[in-house]
Design a protein around this nucleic acid. Structure first.
Lengths: 238, 238
DNA sequence: TAATGTGAATACTTTCACAGCA
DNA sequence: TGCTGTGAAAGTATTCACATTA
């Protein structure tokens, strides 16, 4: 007897079709969710795939394909009900659960994250903010008070944090990451510009501003080079 | 790691290797570059694809395929010369050109970016930091002094900025973006949680922490659900 | 002989066109 | 009639195996 694949065991009700959502679609779904939220505050109740796609900066077949991974939540000939679709996407992404985020590092970046309004409004509660600097410990940042990293493990447990954001210098990142993993955290978002080694069961995502600028630089350089080439070609044809 | 990302609307180039680098490879090349930099500071002179891949968190065939888009810079049976490979990647990405970055928004995030050591060390110079708040204008942040947004256009020209980072609240982002585009900036990195509308010739990249956390939440939720399912199945088989 | 560079196979993503339904 | 939902085709990305070469 073979053990059924885990996917087959997921109830359709709990996560849409029970199938996994392709990573590329998943990333876009979070954008649709944000756009739908904006529409709700503007009192827009109904939207077509064309309109939603336009607002989200994608084309409409792609949007419809993305939504099709969750199920059929639109009405043919009509479009989508904004609050309903928003709710369905939230549910599929697991945002109806309680997510309690600990931020490690209370420099400018950590404080920016702690004060980021986009968290609370989307189901994420920042429950702790740590720093290694004794001067910073005790300071208030929004509703939070900065805690000493020494007490990280006990505070993670007390606050029942289930996600962490790493906003520490590169040198400190792997060490802090290891402590988070040992403390049972399995979802980590890192802003440190280093490759972190973690066990396979730990989900890690990385954001690196230098990487982003380098990608922009590559495209800008190509645009420059091809402009020069076009220019040279124009001169030769003259 | 990075979000699988969008369109690739670059015209065919006419120099160097001429081929465009696939977006997925491009993102990883920036990681290899960082790892090679670290190795150089550690005095490591030679590396195999296996070792470099390990340090970069990818498998070695993928690394070799990525490098093959640039050319053949290794030695069969030996490996890669660390400084040489680093230089070749830098050149391919256009990092030997002068990149002057203006940061718009001097809140915690803007200040974190202005002070980010990873910029200067990788060919990006922060040449201006703007804020709309009169209280912030004039304050020093590292080597920079915060300038008033009112003077943005003239300062962009004076400093010959050719890239911009948007670190302003969502409401202000589209307006500031439009002004940057009108001022001739064609490479923009945005941290604002909104979809920005820009002309096709402008390259824009987005970083959104809420999106990243939502993607983590999705995976964590699936892990939870399948753990529960496995559990239920175990009970049934008992 | 050890490790690169690459064609060919596989897997994933996007696009497209249209069937199907309110 | 108008717009959603989806198979099938086209386009990318990843994996693999191995010919190649210092």
């Amino acid at each position: 007897m073979s053990i059924p694949d885990e996917r087959d065991l997921v109830s359709p009700a709990a996560s849409g079709h029970g199938r996994h959502i392709p990573p590329a679609s998943l990333a876009r779904l979070t954008v649709y969710l944000r756009v739908l939220g904006t529409m709700m505050t503007e009192g827009i109740e109904r939207v077509s795939s064309e309109e939603l796609a336009e607002a989200a900066g994608v084309n409409s077949p792609k949007l419809r394909k993305d939504l099709s991974y969750l199920g059929s939540y639109g009405t043919r000939g009509v479009g989508y009900d904004v609050p309903y679709l928003s709710g369905q996407i939230s549910a599929a992404l697991g945002l109806t659960l309680d997510w309690r985020v600990a931020i490690v590092g209370a420099g400018h970046l950590g404080r920016a994250l702690a004060g980021y309004p986009g968290f609370g409004s989307r189901g994420f509660e920042v429950v702790a903010l740590f720093d290694a600097d004794q001067m910073a410990v005790g300071q208030e940042v929004g509703w939070l008070r900065i805690s000493p990293v020494e007490a990280m493990e006990s505070i993670l447990e007390k606050t029942r944090a289930n996600m962490a954001v790493l906003a520490v210098p590169a040198e400190a990142a792997q060490g802090m990451c290891d402590r988070l993993v040992d403390a049972g955290i399995t979802s980590i978002l890192s802003f440190a510009p280093v490759v972190l080694q973690v066990p396979a069961e730990v989900q890690i995502r990385k954001v690196d501003m230098a990487t982003e600028l380098q990608i922009l630089a590559y495209h800008a350089q190509r645009a420059q080079v091809s402009a020069l080439a076009t220019d040279a070609q124009a001169r030769m044809l003259r």
